[in-house]
């Protein structure tokens, strides 16, 4: 089970703040591809990703229980 957190425009496209996914994916890239197949309008350009609250990359390995968050370009301050 991958716990997915969504913010800003990602939350609006997917229509949810958080999802729990029973998925057989090994890394972030595979998760992105799965999401794109379900939500083709998602745009991952310039979107960062965090696994368990630390910045990660497409190659980062994910396992059941991990919290994955997509971080669209930030605009704090």
């Amino acid at each position: 089970m991958i716990n997915l957190l969504l913010f800003a425009n990602f939350q609006e496209v997917i229509g949810s703040k958080a999802l729990s996914l029973e998925l057989n994916v090994n890394n972030i890239l595979e998760l992105k591809n799965y999401l794109l197949s379900k939500y083709p309008e998602l745009d991952f350009n310039f979107v960062m990703v965090a696994v368990n609250e630390e910045y990660a990359t497409d190659e980062t390995v994910i396992k059941s229980g991990d919290v994955v968050a997509f971080i669209p370009p930030v605009s704090g301050g």
């Binding site: 960062m48 990703v49 497409d58 968050a69 370009p73 930030v74 605009s75 704090g76 301050g77």
Partner: peptide, 27 residues
């Protein structure tokens, strides 16, 4: 990871491409 949503007179947008915001092609 903080985002602001602008509510303008004629609509609303998540701000993520402000000129002063750097972009990260490598993610």
């Amino acid at each position: 990871p903080i985002w602001k949503k602008e509510h303008w007179e004629d609509g609303e947008t998540w701000v993520g491409n402000q000129l002063e915001t750097e972009q990260y092609p490598t993610g």
